[in-house]
């Protein structure tokens, strides 16, 4: 495009009649503008903005605390009780560590049990609600136990032991309430026993796995350690040891006491302690299995292959 052409075009645009605002239109716009209700958005200085944000956050925190405080004292059947449950669920949701989550879920279950006991004394009509709330809290406990069971959490033994202690206490307390009431808490008691059973299963599986994985530091000690993976060999192995403990939950379990010493020693060196257990040592059927000693396994193998 040449300069001349460009000039001509520019002149054509320039000299064309510019849009003209006629007086009627002008007055109409003026009236419309000046009679408009203007929503003024005042400029907020940065400092002022932060102050407002901070104030809003503080206000929100105060309201949440007040609401949470009011809800924390609520009981099943109260209007604010669902608020408390939701707050607890949020707490679980923001607990990435499984050990902490189990701890929190057990705390929540403990709270539900407190509420249940309180209502058993004050208002028996709300007892089914409290029992239901308790059973629901156990769902979280159970789910967390399962999650820990499938994980390689470093504190799993401790977590299971603490959960078992806590659940035993729950079962004892529930049994007391159950005797005083007309069976409203029966279902809750059953659920607690279910979770307790599941916990014991997981612990048993853990024990078996531990026994299988502990390497024998000295082949001379082979016979005592080879006794451990005898599940299915007919002898009273670890599974056989636990069987009586799964029964009535409130019965004391002396067989579990040595496990406390195991948890204090996570490196599994406490395993020799298990030979003291009467259930493990009298397993003579395993002694004729020296197959795992390196010398014996090596000697027979070359000869058939060569022949």
């Amino acid at each position: 495009m040449s300069d001349e052409e460009e000039n001509r075009l520019a002149r054509a645009i320039q000299e064309s009649e510019a849009p003209h605002l006629d007086p009627a239109r002008r007055a109409r716009i003026r009236h419309r503008v000046l009679s408009a209700r203007v929503a003024r958005r005042e400029t907020i200085p940065a400092r002022g903005l932060w102050r407002r944000v901070a104030l809003a956050a503080a206000g929100l925190a105060i309201v949440s605390l007040a609401l949470g405080g009011a809800a924390s004292a609520s009981l099943p059947g109260d209007p604010t009780f669902p608020l408390k449950i939701e707050a607890e669920r949020l707490q679980l949701l923001f607990s990435p560590d499984l050990y902490r989550r189990l701890e929190s879920s057990l705390q929540h279950a403990d709270r539900r049990l407190d509420e249940l006991e309180l209502l058993a004394r004050r208002d028996v009509t709300r007892l089914p609600l409290a029992a239901d709330a308790y059973s629901r809290s156990l769902v979280d406990v159970r789910a967390t136990i399962d999650a820990i069971a499938t994980s390689e959490h470093s504190d799993r033994a401790r977590a299971f032991q603490e959960a078992r202690t806590e659940l035993d206490r729950h079962i004892s307390r529930l049994a007391v309430v159950h005797e005083l009431t007309d069976g409203d808490v029966e279902r809750a008691l059953e659920n607690a026993r279910d979770v307790d059973r599941r916990l014991r299963e997981v612990e048993t599986e853990d024990d078996r796995a531990n026994d299988r994985n502990v390497p024998s530091p000295n082949p001379a000690q082979g016979p005592s350690r080879t006794a451990a993976p005898t599940s299915g060999s007919g002898g009273p192995g670890p599974g056989g040891e636990r069987t009586p403990a799964i029964g009535p939950v409130t019965t004391p379990r002396p067989s579990r006491t040595p496990d406390a010493s195991r948890t204090a020693d996570p490196t599994k060196t406490a395993a020799p302690l298990r030979t003291i257990e009467p259930t493990r040592t009298p397993d003579p059927t395993r002694t004729p299995e020296p197959v795992k000693t390196p010398e014996q396994t090596r000697t027979p193998s070359p000869s058939p292959s060569r022949s």
Binding site: R32, V33, A36, V38, A39, R40, R41, E42, T43
Partner: peptide
């Protein structure tokens, strides 16, 4: 109208 509102 916008100008009036945004004048501040």
């Amino acid at each position: 109208i916008k100008a009036m509102g945004a004048l501040p």
